[in-house]
Amino acid sequence: MKNRIRVERAELRMTQQQLAEAVGVSRQTINAIEAGRFVPSTVLALKIARVFGRRVEEIFSLEETD
């Protein structure tokens, strides 16, 4: 599953730490999600999308291999 978290963060000039605090996880977890090493739960994906003011499918999308 790919995501646009890094792009959305850059647009809002938001650090990983700020996003992590906003959704209640560690900065390392945000890093792992951004890099595609960890797939978040539905709840966490919805929280991240809410921070960026987007729908969840605008932030996360399936890849060919999924």
Partner: peptide
């Protein structure tokens, strides 16, 4: 290992 792998903000 998880913390080390994800320690650097990109």
């Amino acid at each position: 290992r998880f913390k080390k792998q994800n320690s650097h903000e990109e």
